[in-house]
């Protein structure tokens, strides 16, 4: 009848975990965190959280993953709560893959145990940087700008504007 070990202690060394942030529109993985060698992992909006999620619906300290009694637990911390299958939970043991939402309006995340997932990770993991895929085609920009600025109206406008700004400056 031994009490479970106090939270965050290493009964046996915690297995690494994988946490993914899912896209609200298509469920794609937007960001992946792989964390090993820790028994307590913080999730929140605050800088310094192990899993930092910049979303207005995420509390500064929203939740914690705690390794306790040989398994991982998801523990709610902020006021916004955690939802699993649309049900609000305070804490829940994580035996394998679990999808949860940070607050009723917040982002959806997925918890996985490291190793168990390595095989499908390769196809799932897109990792953060969707940013760099937006590129500006400079030649196209110059073309479009050129077509507009070559027009007589634009040149007139340019002249007028220059004059206008001079006038406004001298009386302002």
């Amino acid at each position: 009848m031994g009490n479970p070990p106090p939270s965050g202690t290493t009964a046996n060394t915690a297995r690494g975990v994988v946490v993914q942030l899912l896209s609200p529109t298509n469920g794609m993985v937007l960001k992946t965190w792989k964390i090993a060698g820790k028994n307590k992992i913080s999730i929140g909006r605050e800088t310094g959280c192990d899993i930092e999620v910049l979303d207005p619906f995420v509390s500064r300290k929203h939740a914690e993953l705690v390794h306790n009694d040989g398994k991982w637990w998801l523990v709610s911390q902020g006021r916004n709560g955690i939802l699993v299958h649309n049900l609000r939970v305070e804490e829940i043991p994580l035996h394998g893959e679990v999808t949860f939402r940070l607050g009723s309006a917040g982002p959806e995340m997925r918890f996985l145990l490291e190793g168990a997932t390595e095989s499908n990770m390769a196809t799932l993991c897109v990792d953060t940087a969707p940013i760099t895929i937006f590129m500006v085609d400079e030649a196209k920009v110059q073309n479009e700008v050129g077509a507009i600025t070559a027009r007589e109206e634009f040149r007139r406008l340019q002249e007028h504007v220059r004059e206008l700004r001079r006038k406004r400056q001298s009386c302002g």
């Binding site: 942030l21 896209s23 609200p24 937007l30 960001k31 999620v53 910049l54 979303d55 995420v58 917040g106 982002p107 953060t128 940087a129 969707p130 940013i131």
Partner: peptide, 10 residues
């Protein structure tokens, strides 16, 4: 901007 994007990088 989508959550999960690193806003400062963006």
């Amino acid at each position: 901007a989508l959550a999960g994007t690193d806003f400062s990088v963006l």
